[in-house]
Structure formats: structure tokens, C-alpha cells
Amino acid sequence: MLVFNKKVDLQTHLKQNCSNNSTIGFVPTMGALHKGHLSLLKKSLENNTITVISIFVNPTQFNNPEDLKKYPRTLENDVEKIKTISKEILVYAPSVEDIYEGKTKSQHYNFDGLENQMEGKFRPGHFDGVGTVVKKLFEIVNPTNAYFGEKDFQQLQIVKKLVEKEKLAVTIIGCPIYREANGLAMSSRNERLTEEQKDKASIIYKTMNEAKKLFGTKSAKEVSEFVTKAFKNNTMFELEYFEIADEATLLTCKRKNKNKKYRAFIAVFVNKIRLIDTISLN
């Protein structure tokens, strides 16, 4: 298994091993890999000649320094997990210097308002950081296809918009959410939860499923009130937001339109650990 810490070495290897017919599949991650990440790698392996995964905790997308400091970094363990899928996968695990070359700051982007909803409201500058690092990674790897999990659905839409606006030659592929046995969406942050917290966090998926059922007969406002009440009665969890939004624009649903696709989004704190989830409502 090849692990590259410098972009120049990765690019040299790709240049030497890519033919005109080669396709490169790319899975950008921040590490602390779980089965959800591995499912993205499997998808890439099925559809591409070469698969590259990046493992990089990107400082510019964290508006909370404490969150950045505590974010799990488990490179050796990650590499072992990747090996269980394929030893042919190329790993790019750069330093901040290799990515940002001494200028660790975000470029400002206009994502046509997608960046101002949900996560954007509560994490100022977050999507500028995401856009900046994803563009840099795409320029380094030059992938044919890039794979992103739908748990971060807003991020997925932002990346698609980035590709459209910057006219980048890469196809973005969204992949289904992987869940724990109790329904909790798999996330690198789950590693920071105690067993009790992880067990009780099943309330998030259960509540989202209940919201989906209610959305068939109730208004978006009534569904939101139900979710707010469900978390108000649970002292372990603090609801940051619950939003029902148009899948395409991410604008809040004020009134249901049968011709639109809607999705519910949620962010919850468990002892300062932030968990997000999403579910299609159609």
C-alpha cells in the first residue's frame, strides 16, 4: 500500500501509472474512517482504474478551535482499514503546509445561497473552507469521479455547485448514508461518544423517521414542532436545529409543493459533540 505525504510524489505516481483510458476515483476524507467511508472506496474501486483517498483534517472548515483540536486523528488505523478493502488504493495524507503552502486561509465562494442554510447559519465560514480544500484536492488528484456520503447532504450540494461554477472536469457521486445497528448515522465524531451516548443517540434517527411519517399528513411547521418537543424532553441531547428544506435549493419549506423533493436536516449536541443527520421525506 502506498501512502503519500507530498502532493508532488502523488502526482508523479499518477502520471506514471495513468494511461489515456484510465479513470481516477477519489474519496476525500478527514480520516477516522468507518464503514461509510469504506463503502465509498468500494464504489470507486468498482468504477475506476485507480482509486485515491485523501486523509486530511482541514483547519479552514472549523469555526470552533476546540472541535478542530479534538477531531480524531487515527492515520495508522485508517490505513489498516483501507488495506481490508484493497492494497491498491493510493493514500494521500498531507500536512497543512503541503495543501496550503503557508497560506492557511479560505477563498470566499458564492454558492448561490446554498451556503447560507442549515450548517452555514451555525458554522460561519465553514463552506468557504470546504470549497477551498476540495478545489485544492481536485487540482492535486485530477479525478474523473469523486465520491461523497449523503450524510453531509448540504456539503454534497455545495461541492456539486463548486464543480459547476469553477467548471471542474469531475463527476460528483453521492452515496447512501451508512448507519449503526441502532440507526445512528456513522460519523468520525461517533468515536468520541461513550457507549451509553451512542446507544441513546438512536433517538436522532427514530425522531427523523417519525418526522418523515408525519410529513405525509402534517405541515412542515407541525413536524418541526414535534421534533423540537421530542428533544426538549431529553436532557442528554441539545437540538441545535431541525429543518425541512427543498432538496435542490436547500431553502426552508414554508408550504409543501407536490412537485418538489424535500429533505429533513438535523444537528444535535451530545456533551459538546455535534452530530448531524438527514433523511429524504418524499
Rank of each mutant, 00 (worst) to 15 (best):
I266P: 01
N58G: 05
T207L: 07
G129V: 06
T49I: 13
H34L: 00
D98E: 15
K15A: 15
L281M: 09
E240S: 10
E66G: 08
N110T: 09
K212G: 09
I24Q: 10
E139N: 15
Q61K: 03
D199H: 15
F127S: 00
E80W: 04
G216C: 13
K254H: 12
E240F: 02
E139M: 14
A93R: 02
L239D: 05
K7Y: 15
L10H: 04
I82E: 08
E46V: 12
N282L: 04
M118W: 04
V52W: 06
E164V: 09
S202G: 12
T171E: 15
G131I: 08
L168E: 07
K83L: 07
R255M: 14
K105E: 15
I273K: 03
D246G: 05
L193P: 05
I158A: 01
K83G: 02
I266G: 01
K167S: 10
Q197E: 13
K42P: 01
N5M: 14
M236W: 07
P176H: 00
S280I: 08
L40H: 06
K81I: 07
K6E: 15
L38D: 04
L250A: 07
K121L: 05
K135F: 11
T249P: 01
K212I: 10
K218H: 10
E88C: 12
D246E: 09
A32N: 07
L68G: 07
L10W: 03
H37S: 06
N58A: 12
F56S: 06
A211L: 06
I55R: 02
P59I: 05
F4H: 09
T60C: 11
S44K: 11
N47G: 14
M186C: 01
I172W: 08
E180D: 08
N259E: 12
L14T: 11
N190R: 03
Y147P: 07
